[in-house]
Amino acid sequence: MNFTLKIWRQKGAKDSGQFVTYPIKDISSDSSFLEMIDILNNQLVEKGEEPIAFDHDCREGICGMCSMYINGHPHGPENLITTCQLHMRSFKDGDSITIEPWRSSAFPVIKDLVVDRSAFDRIIQAGGYVSVNTGNAQDANNIPIPKTDADKAFDAATCIGCGACVAACKNASAMLFTSAKVSQLALLPQGQVEAKARVENMVAQMDKEGFGACTNTGACSAECPKGISIENIARMNREFIKAKLSSENV
């Protein structure tokens, strides 16, 4: 298959970027999207040009590293997959494909398609944990947890932290990401003790990082490669109100 790629090139955080067009030929339809970029990069390197910088690692949709905005969609046109799981058979021969980085002021571009997502780490650091030291735990089966709760907590916990939700949102809101962690822990007995402080601190950090407000468009969940449900946002809002009503954090 042959394609015309329009790829965002940007030297560094402070440089301005632009689209550069690269034709590419003879790509197998079984090749993955990132393998196609690998092929292009090898061609660029062998011509002595700089390859396109992009983030990737596991290449099986779980590490959350890959992050390309393809033809107007985070992770491309297919639902419920990451960029690394996208295959060229999802495109038509001769297609023109536009590839950009995540766009959000909270995710500054490092180079080309690589952005800095450390804001997400700082949100988790603000409270996305249970404060249990190693060795403090009781027997794992001492507290039975209803399967439905455990399953829901699991579903929320499957967030891979890729940032597609932010990239998809016109306000660049991080509500889906933050609420997934808040929900996971809110649904489990282990998360109760610190529930109030957690939601307050995580939301405060999210605001501090410069993510936008949520206006309930649902684009985040629709574009999420893991299908994280928008219910989590509702749950976080409830948790937040509960916390504020009896806040000890002044």
């Binding site: 249970v130 794992a140 039975p144 209803p146 399967k147 455990a150 996971q184 489990l188």
Partner: peptide
């Protein structure tokens, strides 16, 4: 397993609520 459950790791459970 004890440590991970205490951290909130959502392992698979049976209907009775046990792991």
């Amino acid at each position: 397993i004890d440590q991970c459950v205490a951290q909130g790791v959502p392992f698979a459970r049976e209907y009775g609520g046990y792991l």
